[in-house]
Every structure is written in C-alpha cells, then in structure tokens.
Nucleic acid binder design. Structure first.
Lengths: 340, 340
DNA sequence: CTGAAAGCGCTTACAG
DNA sequence: CTGAAAGCGCTTACAG
C-alpha cells in the first residue's frame, strides 16, 4: 500500500471507502447512489449496503465542485418579517429538504437592485435552482438568470410568457372578487387603503378599480395609498384618516390583513360600528383575522400551496424531468366573515 | 502553452486567472483575498485590482473542499411559524451575510430527536458554524457538536457551563418580573396559562412559581398547562376556561403574547372587563400587542439583539479571535400597558 | 453495464 | 513574505 507523502486526514468516509468495501470502482458507487439507471441492480444493492454500513454521507462540496452545481436552492423573498413569505419559505424548505436540497434565504426588501446584488453573489454558489418573488426584476437580473441556465420558478403571480416558470394566482382577480363581494353586500362608497405599494398590491388595486368601474362606482378620491411598511398601527391610523376625510365611505378594502386588523381595533377604540357604519375587508387571511371583533372578511391566499408547488416544479426542472405545465394557478378563496 | 486533453470549460474566472493577471502565484492571490496578513501590501493591492477587473468571485465549493469548512452557518430553530424565531433568524442572517457566510435553516419542531437528525445531515455540509436554540439537546447531538469542533452558539437562554457559548436572557427571571409586577399592582389570585410547554415556557413557569411562593400566594390550581401549539384562538379558549373554572382569578399571565392577544379578544367578545375584572399579561411583546384593547402588558424579549450578538460571537469563534465573554445576557424589558 | 484518467478550483503543509 | 506540489472528494467525458 503506497503511503502518500502528505495525507490531510479529514477522517471522512469517502466514495473510495465504499467502493473498496463493495468491491467496485468509485464511479460505480457514485452512479449507484445517485440512482443512475445504468447500474446493475445487484451492484446497487451491494453498494447501498456498504454505504449504509460505513455510514457514508456524500460530500456536498466535492459534488458541487465536480458537477458545477450545488445542492442549494436560493429563495429570494421581499421580507422575512411578513408571515406571507415565511409561510412560503417554510413550504419550500419542507419540500426540498427530503429531496436533498438546502434552502438559502435571500431578503430583497422589495428592492430590485438589492435583488440583483443578491443574485450576483448567490450565483457564485452555483445554486441548483432559484425561486424568486414576482416579475419585478432588473434587466441585469433577468439576463443573469437566463445566462446562468439555473432553473428558476417565479412565485406569487403567474405568467404564460415563453420559457418562464411560475406558480401563483391572479392578484388582480382576487382584488376584483373581494370588491365585488362588497358591492353585492350593498356597499356603495368603497374605499381602498394600501401601503407598501409593491407590484402585487398595485395589482389588487387594479382589480378593485376594474370592479368599481364596471359598476360605475369608481372614485379615485377613495384610494388611500401610503408607501410605508404595513403594520397594525398604520392600519389604525389610515382607518381614522379615511373616515375623517371621507365620512361617507361605507366600506374599506385594505390591501393586507395586518392593516385591516389595525383598522378593526381602531374602530373598537373609536366606537365605530363594523360593519354597521363601515365594513372592513382585508387580504391574505393572516393569523388572528378569524379572532377579530368582528371576524375579518378577507381573501385566503394559498402561500403554503404556492411554496410546495414551486418547489415541486423546481425539482422537476433540476432533474430535467418533463413538466406538466410551466404555469400553475393555485387560485384564491374569498372568506366571508362578520366584518362585511 | 500545453493544451489539456479534456478541458471542462466552466467559463469561470478562477484564482489562476487573477494570479496570471497580477503576475503572482495562485497561493498569493488566495492569501491576499482572504486578508491573511503575511502578504506585502503592494501585492495585495495588485491582486485586488486584478480580481476586481476580472470580476473574480471565489468558488465556495472549491474553498469548502480544500479547507474542509464551508461558508455556511446552520441555524436550528423550533419553528418558522413563530415571529420570535423568525426575528432571530433575520438578525443572524443580516449579520452573517456581509461577512461572507450563508445561513442555512433548520426547523426542529421542538423535537430534540428531529434536531439530532438535522444535525447529522447538516454536519455533512461541513458548516463553518452552528447556532442552536436552548440547551435541550439529545446526548448524541451534544457529542456530535463537540466532536465536530464546529463553533456553536446557543441562543435564548444562557449558561456559564465550561466551553459552552450562549446568548440570551433568564426566562425564569423574566417570568418572575412580570408576576412581581402583577403582585405590585395588587392582584392576588394570579393564574398562569401556558401552551407548547417547551423548556423556556417551563422556565417562565418556574419564575412565576418562585415569585408567588415568595409572596405566599402560590396556588398550583391556578396553573393551566396545555401541550398544544400556541395560537390566538387557543388563547381565547383557555381564557374562557380559566374564568369558568376559577371565577376568583383576578389576573392571568399568559406564557406568550399570541395567547394573551387571544385572551383579550375573547374578553371583548364576552364583555369581561380588562383589567377591571381580570388583568392580562403576556410575554415577548409580539406584533400587535401595543394595538390591543386595552394594550397588552408584556415582557419585551430582545430576539433581534440575541441574533446579532450570537452571530457576532460566532464570527469571532470562526475567525479564532479572542472572545470577550462566552455568555452574553441581553436582558429583557417589562412593558407596562393598559391590560394590567 | 463498468472503469481508468483527468479535472473541478481552491487551500494546506512544507520549504525557502 | 512567497511559491511548487499535493490533495480535498467527487463527477464528467471518453472508452470498451
């Protein structure tokens, strides 16, 4: 046995160890363990047994270096302080982990330029796949993704654009649906209160406008758009402001449940009857909305389902399996409760 | 120039390219870029300039393979559906990223065995560092961490045990403090309502007990312990149950703000005056607690600070820098609002 | 279906 | 302070 001059001695069980134990070559072990079909069933068994017995765990770094592809999937979301995206992240993580992929967090703060920088640094890790939020990217980001050839799935919205993969639902339709519900309930002066003003919020606004225009009831003065970050406290402030400046408003559609919850709490504080004096609707069906007083009417958005479907689509892309569809619309659900 | 027979052509700019451009050896580039002090300042400048100009980005996989240490830090937390841990994760991620470390998520679901399995698979990635929640680990996990020699920081609780690094605060003292506040307010029949029953919740329970025993007011019948997962809805149910079974209770300390918020909303629904009939206190100062009716008295826990401090401590450990202290107590803050 | 050789892009351990 | 050699543990590409 030739003793190498400078053994580094990491103490790791390697492919070679398994190969020696199974009496085959390292390449065969590699193929057998990765499930490549071109290995005799009997050898696969022998290799598996040897690997199991030695407690062999493949080295992700070596694998990444040799194959020019890591086992990491980068997930770029706007914020971690928003339940919506954490639910999404959780679902992605939970779906990818058993398949051997690690989830890398990227927080863009709703800033396409920040996203571009993240993308630049994450691409150095040769991710096996990519999940990005929406379609609001810089030209450079788009190029980077396309040129890298790294499989990528867009989430929260959908598109049928050529070569683009997406899982989401129509934010505009959902905005339309809840506005239509308010109209159907007989409300006539329906306000829209929004913060953050990211692309998806503005799509909900479009749905709201389209619905009211169709009914001949659209009044731009009833839109209150605020660029600050969403919060319960801000929802309360905007609720007050809307009632003060437009006392004739009889319903408010908040672009997000946290604002709507803040609005409901402000109504309690101010003694404003909901829905008697003014109805309140939210969006997303966040934690606690069903516990409010009155319980909040909202749109339930299937972000967990989006995360799972996106992860599954990405797995298929990474494994180069055929795809049933490049765009999955998971829909949304109107949840009518006491606040309207 | 010898043309290799089988070039793989990844198209990547490598250390060698930078070395050629700067007119030095690859090792010197490696050292210069990593900031090893043993390189002449003039060379460092030349290397930096060349790297910059070529757009060189180090390959994490190659680095990990050669050095037997990746640029990943695994963070093991109980749940992703709990703001507390997401805030922590966010802070860790935000602190580590500029230092060149990627955060890997691990969700243990409060299960030491699940944590052990995660640890097993994460260790194969040769993490540069580890952040784990609390001290409730299996014996095997402890061995694995110690044997791997991977720097590890425990968060949320603190210890002065030999060789253990921790950032947190005394959950028991915080539980004691808020109970003492209730006593000082004149409440005499103080209940403790808890769910989840993880180690930190039970430490708060200990603080509650110690405080009431000191005051001669401890009554085990006023403890309502429920193993289910925490939620607003459950908080409402337990609030009702406590008032029904113990109508003489004049204050309730909920182990977490979501339960307390649910309790406050249930009080509104039932027409129970807070704090007139019963005072309500929570724990953690979660989102929305200041917007409740009445606003919720609680303990603010500095999870963002914990995340930052833990990440900083870990950075020092990973860089083998001297540590000011192995245990950092970040304290907590009693927030008195209208509910008590 | 199986394998020997080369290579992925770095860093470690020695030298000088 | 700088460098030539070897090695980290895999997979790709080519043969047979």
């Amino acid at each position: 046995m030739p003793s190498p001059r400078r053994p580094r001695a990491t103490g790791r069980v390697t492919l070679g160890d398994v190969a020696a134990a199974a009496g085959v070559s390292p390449i065969t072990v590699s193929r057998a363990l990765r499930g490549e079909r071109s290995v005799a069933a009997e050898l696969v068994e022998r290799v598996r047994a040897a690997a199991q017995q030695l407690g062999y765990v493949p080295d992700p770094a070596a694998r990444a270096l040799a194959s020019a592809r890591s086992s990491h999937v980068a997930v770029l979301i706007p914020l971690l302080t928003n339940t919506l995206f954490v639910d999404l992240l959780e679902a992605v993580h939970r779906t990818l982990l058993p398949a051997g992929y690690q989830t890398l967090i990227g927080v863009t703060h709703y800033d396409p330029l920040e996203e571009e920088q993240l993308l630049n640094s994450y691409m150095a890790h040769r991710p096996a796949g990519l999940i990005v939020t929406g379609f609001d990217h810089t030209e450079a980001s788009r190029h980077l993704i396309a040129a890298s050839r790294v499989p990528c799935v867009h989430v929260m919205e959908t598109t049928h654009a050529e070569g683009v993969h997406s899982v989401g639902f129509s934010q505009a339709d959902a905005g339309h649906a809840i506005t239509a519900h308010l109209l159907a309930r007989g409300y006539k002066r329906i306000a829209f209160v929004a913060t953050q003003l990211d692309p998806r919020v503005m799509q909900r606004a479009e749905g709201y406008r389209r619905c009211l225009r169709e009914a001949g009831r659209y009044d731009p003065k009833l839109e209150l758009l605020n660029p600050e970050r969403s919060s319960l406290a801000l929802g309360g402030q905007l609720f007050e402001q809307m009632l003060r400046t437009h006392p004739d408003v009889d319903a408010i559609f908040f672009c997000n449940d946290d604002l709507a919850q803040g609005g409901l709490l402000a109504a309690l504080r101010l003694g404003v009857a909901v829905p008697g004096t003014v109805a309140v609707a939210g969006f997303n069906d966040l934690n606690g909305s069903d516990q409010m007083l009155p319980p909040l009417t909202t749109v339930r958005t299937p972000r967990t389902r989006i995360g799972e479907e996106a992860a599954r689509m990405l797995l298929a892309l990474m494994r180069r399996e055929p795809l049933a569809q490049t765009s999955v619309d998971v829909g949304y659900q109107l949840i009518v409760r006491g606040s309207t």
